[in-house]
């Protein structure tokens, strides 16, 4: 089991950029283009890691610390993330809350790095990021509280044993609500459409992209990789709720989970192909809706 946990962590480290590739490929196929290579993100990372850097004269150590702390925090969060009924490398009671705190640290580092440039555009992105993620946080914790409440455990590795085979028949409505809530949070926390458009070229409409305008070279590579890992992390949370564990053999579970991760990326691609970005004042409504789904799931479970 320990070996399998380590394998899962390595899979996350290795395959997370692939998720972005799948999303882009899905969008390309739907719009009838041939699109970028599936492995484009790997090429980008390699290219960026090989470059030098240019720093603004305004910036201080905070700017340089931002990408490092951000990547470290996401890596630390990955250490407590289970996949497919296989416990995480590190599991302890309360790790579900610590995971959220690590994601908060990554955000703090990114926002401070953006503000360190003194650019009004980056200030704008930082302000939006802080506002939207403040609203996303209660929704995320409520969604995870469904698992706590259902299993009576406080560690992600132990609570994500639910849903097992057959649980979808017993508590289908709850699971659907949780999956929807977590999926909305995946979209918003990873700056995907309909909250933020990763492909836009107008700085005024950006959230995440505008915060990293001034980063380059290895710093940008760190940020890009951290974003990919964060996408993997949220996908794992969604897939863990959607795909039942305990299908018979560990190998079968593992394959089901990986297939689920792929499907999740395709689903993100489908959403991005069919929806437009929401107007910014509408985003809080989307996040409130995610919170509403999670609260409803809790209510049904808790009665």
């Amino acid at each position: 089991m320990r070996a399998l946990s380590a394998v899962n962590l390595l899979l996350a480290l290795g395959l997370s950029p692939l998720l972005l590739g799948i999303i882009n490929r899905t969008k390309a196929v739907i719009s009838g283009r041939s699109g970028r290579p599936l492995l484009q993100v790997y090429f980008d990372l390699a290219k960026l890691l090989g470059k030098g850097a240019v720093y603004s004269r305004t910036t201080t150590w905070v700017f340089k610390a931002g990408p490092i702390v951000g990547l470290a925090a996401v890596l630390a969060a990955l250490a407590v993330l289970p996949l497919g009924g296989v416990p995480a490398l590190v599991a302890f009671p309360g790790d579900v809350f610590v995971l959220v705190a690590f994601l908060g640290l990554a955000r703090f580092a990114l926002i401070c790095g953006a503000l360190d440039t003194g650019s009004s555009f980056e200030g704008m992105g930082a302000s939006r990021e802080a506002a939207f993620s403040a609203l996303a946080e209660p929704a995320l914790l409520l969604a995870l509280l469904v698992f706590v409440s259902r299993t009576g455990t406080y560690s992600l590795s132990r609570m994500y044993v639910w849903p097992g085979a057959g649980d979808w028949l017993a508590s289908g409505p709850v699971l659907i609500l949780v999956v929807i809530a977590l999926f909305i949070l995946l979209l918003s926390e990873n700056s995907r459409i309909p909250v933020d458009d990763p492909n836009t070229h107008l700085e005024l409409t950006m959230i995440h992209e505008v915060m990293v305008l001034d980063h380059g070279g290895p710093d940008l590579a760190f940020i890009l990789y951290a974003a990919a890992l964060k996408l993997w992390l949220f996908s794992a949370l969604v897939v863990g709720a959607a795909v039942p564990t305990g299908l018979g053999s560990p190998l079968l579970d593992e394959l089901a989970m990986l297939a689920g991760m792929g499907m999740c990326a395709v689903a993100v691609g489908l959403v991005e192909s069919t929806m437009a970005r929401l107007r910014l004042p509408r985003v809080p409504q989307l996040l409130t809706a995610a919170g509403a789904f999670a609260a409803l799931a809790l209510a049904i479970l808790g009665r």
Partner: peptide, 8 residues
């Protein structure tokens, strides 16, 4: 090469 410049 590590340079310094203006904020974009």
């Amino acid at each position: 090469p590590v340079g310094r410049g203006l904020t974009w």
